[in-house]
Amino acid sequence: MKDWKPATLAAQAAGAQERETGGIVPGISVTSTYGRGPDYALLRPGNIYGRDENETVRQAEAVIRALEGAAATRLFPSGMAAIAAAFRTVPGGGRVVMQSGIYWGTVKWAREFCARRGITLDEVEASDLSLLSGALSQKADLVWIEVPSNPWLKLVNIEEAVTIAHAAGAVLAVDATAATPVLMRPLEMGADLVMHSATKGLNGHSDVVAGGLSVKDEGLPAWQAICSDRHDAGAILGPFEAWLLMRGMRTLPLRVERSSENALRLAQALENHDALEAVWYPGLATHPQHALAQRQMQGGYGCLVSILVKGGFEAAARVVSRLQVFHRATSLGGVESLVEHRHVIEPHTGIPENLLRLSVGIEDAGDLIADIEQALR
Rank of each mutant, 00 (worst) to 15 (best):
G201V: 10
I119H: 03
T89M: 13
A62I: 03
A225K: 14
V182I: 15
A242K: 06
A168Y: 09
V30T: 14
L376D: 07
L202W: 01
E68A: 14
D175H: 08
A167P: 02
G311N: 06
E373Y: 03
T349C: 09
V256C: 08
E340A: 13
D229I: 02
D367E: 14
F113G: 00
S32Q: 10
H196S: 01
A225D: 03
R342L: 12
C227P: 00
V320F: 05
D39L: 13
L270G: 11
G118Y: 10
H231G: 06
A263H: 06
R247I: 03
A225S: 11
W152H: 12
V63P: 00
L132Q: 02
A85N: 03
T8V: 15
G190Y: 04
E277F: 01
A135Q: 02
A110L: 13
P282F: 09
A86D: 01
R111L: 03
T73C: 15
N157P: 00
G219V: 02
A317C: 02
I236F: 15
G94W: 04
A275V: 01
A66Y: 06
I28N: 03
S206I: 08
T21M: 07
N150M: 03
V305S: 03
K154E: 13
P347M: 14
R19P: 01
I362P: 00
W152F: 14
T120F: 06
A135H: 02
N262G: 07
Y301N: 00
G361M: 09
T21F: 07
Q294V: 15
A41Q: 15
A176H: 04
L183H: 05
E53S: 13
P288V: 10
A233C: 11
E159L: 05
F76Q: 01
I48S: 11
G204L: 04
G118A: 08
R255F: 03
I145R: 08
R88V: 02
D3I: 09
R19N: 05
D3H: 14
A41W: 09
R58Y: 13
V209G: 02
V360R: 05
A316L: 06
L187E: 10
S127V: 01
L237P: 00
P352S: 07
A316M: 00
E261Q: 12
P91H: 12
L220M: 13
G334M: 10
V305K: 03
K200Q: 12
E125M: 12
S137R: 14
G311V: 06
R95W: 07
F76P: 00
E159R: 15
I24T: 12
